[in-house]
Amino acid sequence: MNRLVLSAQLVERGALRYTPAGLPALDLSLKHESEVSENGVPRKVSLEIKALGIGEITVVLSKMALGATGQFGGFLAAMRNGRGMRFHITSVDASPAMAA
């Protein structure tokens, strides 16, 4: 199963664009920082990941303020150029305080 749920901060949002199929799409960057236990030892984790929202989810994502945090759900897929991966967002849990 390819399912990712990530608590993260919205740090960058591109302009709304449309796919060749006519669906709205937003390119995003998300930042995550936490402390996890790995083999019983605490470890600080910090990462920034490229993300993409396509379709109805773009309405929610476009209303989120930069710097807002939320719980993003979706899946990982290879980027078109084959270099790296991107987090495709299919759901977001954001409180009203997170919207602009």
Rank of each mutant, 00 (worst) to 15 (best):
L30A: 08
A25G: 03
G82F: 13
I49N: 12
E35N: 05
L66T: 00
M1G: 15
R3Q: 09
G74W: 06
V92F: 03
A77G: 02
G14N: 12
A100Y: 14
S34P: 00
V11R: 02
G82H: 13
K44R: 13
R13Y: 07
V60E: 01
S7P: 00
G70E: 11
R3E: 13
D93E: 07
R43K: 14
R80P: 01
A97D: 15
N39V: 12
V36L: 05
R13T: 03
G55R: 00
E12W: 15
P20C: 02
G67T: 10
L23T: 09
I49K: 09
V11S: 09
G84L: 10
L10Q: 09
V36K: 01
R83T: 11
F72C: 06
R3M: 09
A100N: 11
I49P: 07
L30H: 08
L66A: 02
K63Q: 14
R80S: 04
R3W: 08
L52P: 06
M64C: 05
R43M: 10
Q9N: 05
S29R: 12
S34L: 08
L47N: 05
P24S: 10
I49E: 14
V41L: 10
E48N: 03
R86L: 13
E48R: 02
M64K: 00
V59R: 11
S7T: 07
L61M: 10
D27M: 10
D27T: 13
A21W: 00
G40T: 12
M64I: 08
S46K: 08
F87C: 01
G70K: 03
A15E: 14
E35W: 04
S62L: 08
L28S: 00
L26W: 02
E35C: 05
A51M: 04
L23F: 06
K50R: 14
G82C: 06
V5N: 11
G14Y: 12
L30N: 05
S29F: 10
R83C: 01
V60R: 00
D27P: 02
R3T: 10
A21N: 06
L28E: 00
L76Y: 03
G73P: 01
H32G: 05
A68Y: 02
V41G: 01
G67F: 14
T19A: 00
G14E: 13
E56C: 01
A99Q: 08
T90S: 04
